[in-house]
């Protein structure tokens, strides 16, 4: 059923656009387009020197209702996390994945109770490491896998995300060559999550409310300058 439906749909489409089954010229056009992956129109906003780019990233994340802390290096992460939780009057618990960059952190000087793995849904605070940041919109890019389980992006009430300054780029288009270099052309991790601020809804009388189904608060820690 499905195989013949596939042929029927494709043949109707082909007929409507006047293409033949073995239309080599068209195949070449499509193959070229996929291979070249032209970037298109890139807004000027994100095209600036590194220091300004990082500033822009923080400003835009703030406009999307995320909070941002900047620290010099990974040494400062445990204290920055503990400090934010304290200031927000939240319990000192933290759920995180197996990311080596997180595993290398020394939380012993803090009172934080750590637990590891995917979220079961009753975690209050989650910690993830992003693999990219987009300055144009203050967006984080998180990749699925054991290092940073996707459920940590959505289930905890509060989500703390680390991003390194080297991974912050001007625009979304600039992230794709990096991803292709890491996973191979045409290949993707199961889930690529772009996150811009905490979850929200305006479904009741167009009133914007934070904390719909995902985290109520998003805290970004930008490492390095």
């Amino acid at each position: 059923m499905t195989a013949s439906s596939r042929d029927a749909i494709l043949s109707r489409v082909r007929h409507a656009i006047g293409g033949r089954v073995h239309d080599e010229a068209r195949r070449e056009v499509v193959a070229m387009r996929l291979a070249e992956a032209p970037a298109g129109v890139i807004p000027a906003r994100g095209q600036r020197p590194r220091a300004e780019l990082l500033e822009l990233f923080c400003t835009m994340a703030g406009r999307a209702s995320a909070s941002v802390t900047r620290i010099a290096g990974y040494d400062g992460v445990p204290e920055a996390v503990a400090e934010w939780l304290r200031a927000a009057n939240l319990p000192a618990t933290l759920r995180l994945g197996a990311d080596p960059r997180l595993a290398a952190l020394d939380f012993s000087a803090t009172a934080l109770q750590l637990s590891h793995g995917a979220s079961s849904g009753d975690d209050l605070n989650g910690l993830s490491h992003a693999d990219g940041g987009i300055a144009e919109t203050g967006t984080l890019m998180l990749l699925s896998g054991a290092d940073n389980p996707t459920s940590l992006n959505f289930l905890p009430e509060n989500h703390i995300v680390l991003v390194h300054a080297d991974d912050v780029v001007g625009d979304m288009e600039a992230l794709w060559p990096r991803l292709r270099a890491r996973f191979g052309k045409g290949l993707m991790p199961r889930s690529v999550n772009f996150v811009t601020g905490p979850s929200r809804s305006a479904d009741i009388e167009q009133t914007l409310l934070l904390g719909a189904h995902g985290p109520r608060a998003l805290h970004v820690i930008l490492i390095g300058d």
Partner: peptide
Amino acid sequence: ATGQEMSVYTTLSTGPRRSDDPDG
């Protein structure tokens, strides 16, 4: 759509859970 610079969640899904994925 909503006058946002970017929606909060833009999620790209490719295939089912991988062998080393803890969720999905």
